[in-house]
Design a protein around this nucleic acid. Structure first.
Length: 272
DNA sequence: TGACAGGTACATG
DNA sequence: CATGTACCTGTC
């Protein structure tokens, strides 16, 4: 167990931000996370955040996963002081970090996210992990499930995935898994590409349209200029009759998108 | 009861 | 290129 004094970081806000579907509450201020083949618990303790891992693991894994080297204070400072909406959104959701999630897992979870709600997305992810994922043991001595490899998912049938509750996304998942296994889209090559190129590759996958591709670019490949536009963000954009000032926020608009998304979804309830 | 949930694929003008 | 529609399923 280690403790860190972290700025611009709130694990609860991150858990509610809808970018990661395996970060779950254990209690009011404690969350469990399964990612990168590991299990960790994160707990808010006053102004500090506690991680159930060694200093070494924190430096090697979680510091990067939670994007703690990026200057979020600087991003907030760049917000137009007269833009009341963005100022408020950044204040309310200012503890959000853009995670650096695994690419394959992010592809699958955001295909599942379309026309879906967070509880059911989580249920679908749990079903996939339980059916096709490997087992590991956490520090409590309890087993937990890893996210399944593309090969395991590709071996599934559409029918089986429908039985598991994936609905019409079932064929998307099977086809995409097969495309990844056949290297029709080579995931190993994607991290080296720029935003536009990576997005174009992702759009080849079945069930991946512009919105999901932008989510993958933002939440896995860390192209923080990606700006996914969904139903909530569409409503937000209407607040800007002369158009949202993308030029002003070039290179990091995706961070503001997350502040706005969280604000639209949770509003005052999310405030500390 | 019906609309909605972090859309996409596919068919048309 | 832009618009229209079907699509699983749980929840309010």
């Amino acid at each position: 167990m280690i403790k860190k004094e972290l700025n611009d970081f709130d694990i609860r806000q991150i858990a509610l931000s809808g970018q990661c579907f395996r970060l779950r509450p254990l209690s009011e201020h404690t969350f469990s996370l399964t990612a990168l083949g590991r299990y960790v618990e994160i707990s808010r303790q006053g102004t500090e955040t506690a991680f159930s891992c060694t200093e070494q693991e924190w430096e090697d894994v979680w510091e990067n996963y939670f994007d703690l080297h990026t200057d979020y204070a600087g991003i907030k400072k760049a917000i137009d002081p007269e833009d009341f909406y963005l100022q408020e959104a950044a204040r309310i959701g200012g503890g959000i970090r853009i995670l650096r999630q695994e690419l394959w897992e992010t592809i699958v979870t955001f295909i599942l996210s379309q026309q879906n709600n967070i509880p059911r997305i989580q249920k679908c992810v749990d079903a996939l992990c339980g059916e096709f994922g490997g087992e590991a043991e956490n520090f409590h001595g309890n087993t937990y499930r890893l996210f399944p490899e593309p090969e395991a998912v590709a071996s599934a049938t559409e029918e089986r995935l429908r039985e598991m509750g994936l609905g019409y996304r079932a064929p998307y998942i099977v086809k995409t898994a097969r495309m990844v296994c056949e290297k029709e889209v080579d995931l190993d090559r994607l991290p080296a590409l720029g935003y536009e190129e990576a997005k174009a590759e992702l759009l080849k996958l079945c069930g991946v349209g512009t919105k999901v591709a932008d989510c993958i670019c933002l939440f896995a490949l860390h192209h923080i200029e990606a700006f996914p536009i969904d139903t909530h963000i569409k409503a937000m954009l209407k607040r800007y009759p002369e158009g949202f000032p993308f030029e002003r926020y070039q290179g990091f608009a995706g961070v503001l998108q997350q502040y706005a998304f969280y604000y639209e979804l949770h509003g005052q309830k999310g405030a500390e």
